[in-house]
Design a protein around this nucleic acid. Sequence first.
RNA 1: GCCCACGUAACUCAGUGGUAGAGUACCUCCUUGGUAAGGAGGAAGUCACCGGUUCAAGUCCGGUCGUGGGCUCCA
Length: 641
Amino acid sequence: MTQIAVSVQDGEQKQFASGITIAEALKDLVSNKQRKQIVASVCNGLPSDLGTTLTTDSVLEPILLASEQGLDILRHSTAHIMALAVKNIYGNDVKVAIGPAISDGFYYDFDKKKAFSPEDFEAIENKMAEIVAGRLPFERQEVTKAEAIKLFDELGESYKVELLNDMEADPVSIYKQDGFIDLCRGPHIPDSSWLKVFKLLRVAGSYWRGDEKKQMLTRIYGTAFTDKKDLKRYLNQLEEAKKRDHRKLGKELGLFTIQDQIGPGLILWQPKGALLRKLIEDYWKEEHYKSGYELLYTPHIARQDLWKTSGHLDFYGENMYSAMEIDEVMYQLKPMNCPFHIGVYNATKHSYREFPIRWCELGTVYRYERTGALHGLMRVRGFTQDDAHIFCRPDQLEDEIFNIIDLNLHILKTFGFDEYDVYLSTRPEKYVGSDEHWELSTDALKQALEKKGLNYSIDPGEGVFYGPKIDIKIKDQLGRSWQCSTIQVDFNLPERFQMTYTGEDGAEHQPIMIHRALMGSLERFIGILIEHYAGAFPLWMAPEQARIMNITDDQGEYCERVFNQLRKAGIRISKDLRNEKLNYKIREAQLKKISYMLIVGEREKEEGTVTVRMRNGKNLPPMRPEQFVEFIEKECEEVTS
RNA sequence: GCCCACGUAACUCAGUGGUAGAGUACCUCCUUGGUAAGGAGGAAGUCACCGGUUCAAGUCCGGUCGUGGGCUCCA
């Protein structure tokens, strides 16, 4: 019999008879204790089942169940077990589509006449528990593609047949479990008893292969863990995210409202939210002024011809609202601000000496979003871009990009975001502009990123047709990432609008145009801020920095005086002089996430002070109102300067 | 847009074919209390909208509008 040499990576090599399974080999290669944790193994670079037979010299890298890869396998197998349960319950009423592991769990798509609803979960989970108790093995088998097609065709599993037809692999692997046969690459847990902790989470519709022209399937999401505690932690995380949901907090804190009567995707800012927004806008404008930008204001509609010239009707028309007729001329709502800024540019003649020109605007745009895509402040139909356009000469491009990134990161940091993922997107297949231009500007973007010392990944071919771009994604408190900032070079619009400047040589040249948004959409950015801070905003942008409250009516007048003094000094303060107990007032202010409570009893009234209670429940020593003003101003300055 | 779920007082929600409910908020009164809910009373709803079934509809059926979870992390 042939002998083969098998070893665990970095471990001792041993001789075995050819045909031995990985599981058997591992018995001799690792300790018993360790072996119980091993769910599968990478074998010569290929993730494999423990039941895989070895016929050549092999190097094994065991996969521990609790590792990331192990969890993936467990969840993938759980998807299969769920499919088996579903097939057991509903038989030929369901066809299976695909069922992969995803980042926090798994899903399986089914074709079923009447879609699943959460009420079906109990039955499915019970059946899954039975399967787990039955210790059903996952049996792998390799068959030719033709055999597999025949097999799944006979089983009536047309989605599998379609998958097979599109696949290049041949032979392919199938897994059998208690009569349920699934096309699958594997690997899997050896048998169903490895599954200890699982939960079905939600149902959703999904198109076959994500294509809305194709069949709508019904998807069940679930998750699996090795430990009950992990599942609990995961469910807690979901709860935490729910608590921070900007739609819930927006309502509770009185920030914004969306109403049927007004229309979906259209935001009404309530006083507190409007103040928050104003504070953000003011800060934004100030920083832009400091960085050499000038502010523009432009209208919300323009003649349709403008959008023809800009190319928006051709390339972006589907996202634009229908035209309206004014004095027999067609006008359309703006989906972007750029043509207006170009209008400002073209209003006068320009010399190379003026460059770089940096114009910014908080421009409100309107874009059609499908009803199913709308989501609180995160996806709306009318929103305000923190837009800017820079016009410059080719030799200024790199410096300008550097300055933009610099300003960008500075502002994001002030808002509390200091973790980023940066992407550079290069020339796509379809593009305008000369190769020379593309090379020059892609290079400028790269140089600027490197000079700034930023790590970035390249998205080849993902640039917009009119120029390369840099995207910056920020990470929030819960570790979720959001794409907000984008910096795009544009060779298209200067050409379409025949923009020019007079060069050193006296001839007319075309300027380079950079589009740039930093927060992206103000609405969405505020949504992100609400969730990032769970509604407890840093002092400098808190709409309510302080609330003064009396202990009994006797301090009412004194409180009024202090309130007026602080308000005049620019503190964003409210008062609670109601005939209620202190406890009650504190609780309410706490729930509204107000930064400081100013508590006034007889002592404070007599001494002319206030006692400052912080959000964490601790008190600062009593201070005079003017000391409190200084204190607030100092705290704000530390962040925004 | 499509699939599923949901839409009841300002808010959070209960109400499974037979007289619209609770808690919170709001208003009035009592209470004047030092760090997360004092007490009593009152007012408040076209049960999203339109139509149908029924002696009878918040409840069942159909449609419209809106909200939520999703709609390739590819066997």
